[in-house]
């Protein structure tokens, strides 16, 4: 029975440590220490763009298609096919696309960071950095966070555009219960510019958490190659939990009191 709760118990025990670690790394970015290594930050940004953009966009696009299809058939079944746009708008912007982004970030970027930093830790590369007089936490972790903050807002908004397109294709071109004009009217009526900002904030908080969790587990890996593997798995679990927590809290905070639903209005 004890084994079953080992992981959550470990999180509770490590909350303080993880929190401190995250605070230090964010402080390095806010306080500008990371700018000593601006070149390395740009290099990391480049790596992020080249290696992760397409998979993240692909998942966002596919889930955009799904939101459209679900919405079209569900509202048709309830006698309001013209309102497919509501479902697509909310599903895309507020919920599913941020999650899709979070999942792929955790799977591709988060685990990648754990594996990379973990390998550096066990082969003494982090120690080597330290003895060269380089603050390894700033050099390895803060640069990755800054890179994420530079790249991901654009990546996310472009991906959101792709997901909108996907929903449009699914509802109007594929299923076809509603005309293009009718769909778009409703689609745009049920969201406004602040919603984009909220959605972006949601996604960026997720991304920040994912990068920091990845850095924490990689930077503190131990126990040889097996230890790095275990750390990778643990980081994925924690990241999925955090993605959902952030998604849920974000929806509560941003849309809980003001759903921005002009129904009957």
């Amino acid at each position: 029975m004890n084994e079953l709760f080992a992981l959550p118990r470990e999180w509770l025990a490590a909350t303080g440590e993880i929190g401190r670690f995250m605070g230090t790394v964010m402080g390095d970015v806010w306080g500008g220490r990371v700018l000593h290594f601006f070149g390395e930050s740009l290099r990391q940004a480049g790596i992020l763009i080249v290696s992760s953009t397409l998979v993240i966009w692909a998942l966002m696009f596919i889930l955009g298609l799904i939101c459209g299809t679900e919405g079209a058939y569900f509202l048709e079944a309830n006698g309001a096919p013209a309102y497919a746009g509501v479902f697509a708008a909310w599903c895309d912007l507020r919920e599913i696309i941020p999650y899709a982004f979070g999942y792929m970030m955790a799977a591709k970027v988060g685990t990648g960071i754990v594996a990379e930093l973990g390998a550096m830790r066990i082969s003494d590369e982090i120690d080597a950095l330290e003895v060269m007089g380089i603050d390894s936490m700033t050099f390895l972790c803060a640069t990755r966070l800054l890179a994420a903050w530079i790249v991901l807002p654009f990546l996310y908004l472009a991906g959101m555009g792709g997901a909108f397109l996907a929903s449009y294709i699914a509802v109007v071109q594929q299923v076809g219960f509603v005309s293009s004009g009718g769909y778009l009217l409703i689609f745009w009526e049920f969201q406004n510019p602040p919603d984009f900002l909220f959605s972006l904030i949601k996604a960026m908080v997720m991304a920040t958490a994912i990068v920091l969790v990845g850095c924490y587990y990689g930077y503190n890996a131990g126990g040889g190659p097996v230890g790095v593997g275990t750390a990778t798995a643990k980081s994925m679990v924690l990241n999925l939990v955090l993605v959902h927590l952030i998604g849920m809290l974000g929806t509560q905070v941003f849309w809980g009191n003001n759903p921005n639903a002009p129904i009957g209005g």
Partner: peptide, 24 residues
């Protein structure tokens, strides 16, 4: 302090037991 330690370390040259080259 951390900052002084980093300063001092710039005077060091260290070879680790298995090289510790940066894999990337």
């Amino acid at each position: 302090s951390d900052d002084d330690l980093f300063e001092l370390r710039k005077k060091f040259g260290v070879l680790f037991q298995d090289g510790a080259l940066f894999g990337s």
